[in-house]
Simulated assay, not measured.
Amino acid sequence: MRATATWSGTIAFGMVSIPVQLYAATEEHTARLHEIDTADGSRVQHRRFCAAEGREIPYSEVGRGVAVPDGRMLPLSEDDLARLPLPTKHTITVAGFIEPTGVVPLSYDRPYYVAPAAPEAERPYALLVEVLSRTGLVAMAKVAIRSRERRAVVRPYAGMLLLQTLRWRDEIRDPGDLAHLVPAVPLSDRERRLAEVLVQEILVRVSGFYVAGVPLPPDSLHIDPGGFCRNSALARVMWWHGASRLGRPVGVDARPTATTGPICCSA
């Protein structure tokens, strides 16, 4: 299937302006569940109903609006939305360059591939990819996608640029209210050492799963779909250690599972 651009404009920083297009970088692969009538299994439909007129209305009569402080609804047409004074409507405005660690991971939202939109943009585009790759920096920017202005990060990825939108600060919840749900648990030095060894074991085996954006063959990743470690003698020993401390019988043929132990190892 041919990729379709979701946004067209330019990347602008300093005196440089590069025509680019954005393409969705992710897609969902989930089983879609439908609402049905439990009596006969038939599909349930949702209809557009106007409460003021007491009737169902067609999609052609459905518009969008925003509530004003006095409670009235202010209608907005597509032309109104198109004329919104967003300076970043067709421009990815770069404010500066920072270290990637300066971006809080919780801020990351939706990713887009960035591609040059014209032949004359190919050289400056390639130069920007090269500079960001060599310096290890990312560009902090603003961009308006679907009439909504967002912060964004532009970084090199798999030989091209990747733009990832960021949530605004007021869209991120403060975890302070959840502090009482995470009690302070005393840990022994032995438990810490065992946990560190397990982490290092798995890190060595999966850290190369993506190298410069290129996925390795599936058989190079020794983790099963359920997220449990396979074929790891160390993981088996750690499970036995945890089971014995909990008073569970542990034999030569013991096989921990997702419900009986924290780690599942296959033979």
Rank of each mutant, 00 (worst) to 15 (best):
L106R: 13
D174N: 15
V153M: 08
S8E: 14
N231C: 03
A179M: 03
G251N: 13
F13V: 04
V138P: 01
G63F: 03
G65C: 11
R47G: 00
W7Q: 10
P249M: 14
G9Y: 07
D80M: 06
E61D: 09
T165C: 06
L132R: 08
V197L: 09
S8W: 13
A126I: 01
H29L: 02
V94I: 15
E171K: 03
Y108K: 07
D79A: 04
M140S: 12
D37M: 04
P249R: 15
P75V: 04
S77K: 12
G251K: 13
A258H: 13
A179V: 08
G102H: 02
A82W: 11
P105I: 07
L127P: 05
L106N: 10
V199A: 03
L246K: 14
V250N: 00
D174Q: 12
T91V: 15
R43L: 15
S60L: 04
R43P: 03
V185D: 00
P58N: 06
A235E: 04
G242Y: 09
A235Y: 01
L127D: 05
A82F: 13
C50H: 14
T135D: 04
A152V: 00
L163I: 06
W7L: 00
H34N: 12
M140E: 06
W168F: 10
R173L: 14
S220G: 14
P256W: 02
P87N: 00
D40T: 05
A158W: 06
A158Y: 05
G213R: 05
D170S: 11
E27S: 04
H222W: 08
A235P: 07
I18G: 00
Y157R: 13
V62L: 14
L137R: 12
P249E: 14
E171R: 02
F49N: 14
D79L: 03
V129G: 05
V16I: 06
S266N: 04
A39N: 03
M140F: 08
V16K: 09
S60E: 14
P217N: 00
L84D: 14
S107M: 13
P116C: 10
L106M: 13
I263W: 10
L161W: 11
R64I: 05
G261F: 09
A144M: 11
W240I: 08
A51H: 10
L74A: 06
G213Q: 03
R32K: 15
L81Y: 01
V104I: 11
P175S: 01
R146Q: 09
A118Q: 07
L161K: 10
E191K: 00
A121G: 07
P100G: 04
V131P: 00
A3M: 07
Q200V: 03
H29G: 09
A24C: 06
H90Y: 12
Y59G: 02
R193F: 12
L81V: 01
S220T: 15
